[in-house]
Amino acid sequence: MNRHMIPLGVFAALLLLFWVGLGLNPNIIPSPLIGKEAPKFELPELHNQQETVSNEMLKGQVTVFNVFASWCISCRAEHHHLLDLQRKGVYLIGLNYKDERRHALGYLSQLGGDPYAKIAFDYKGDIGIEWGVYGTPETFVIDKKGIVRHKHTGPLYREVIENELLPLIRKLEQEV
């Protein structure tokens, strides 16, 4: 009796392994930035070239840092969610990644407005590399001290916002 339980046990273990393993999305690379200070940067602002946007702006409040570009199709899909977040009082900083200024401005006006408090204009894509950007759109949640606490790769959708993003933002807002 005992002997016959062994293959059954092995089978159950394999089943569990596959169940978990095949459920993972191989395109999602865990970010090494989680728990670390947001990468330093200093870039011109998209609307106003004279102005600079830097990592210092990520401190002092809970910030959603969103990487987008006008050439990025799925960014279009999540844009109304970002506008929605702004309406809910979320502080958003944008990183316009490897884009042309006029294209980015056209994109924002075409999609119903600019949800970002400030937009850093990363024409060369250097700052994107600093943040480990590999698939726009990417969204980071940064706490009041400027520490990266969460990353979502790919477009935001309602479940992610309601089940992950907003609860985390509310929680981080309670922190000193």
Binding site: I29, S31, P32, L33, G132, Y134
Partner: peptide
């Protein structure tokens, strides 16, 4: 590279 993109 690892600092930015992880060991992957």
């Amino acid at each position: 590279m690892v600092d930015r993109y992880g060991e992957f």
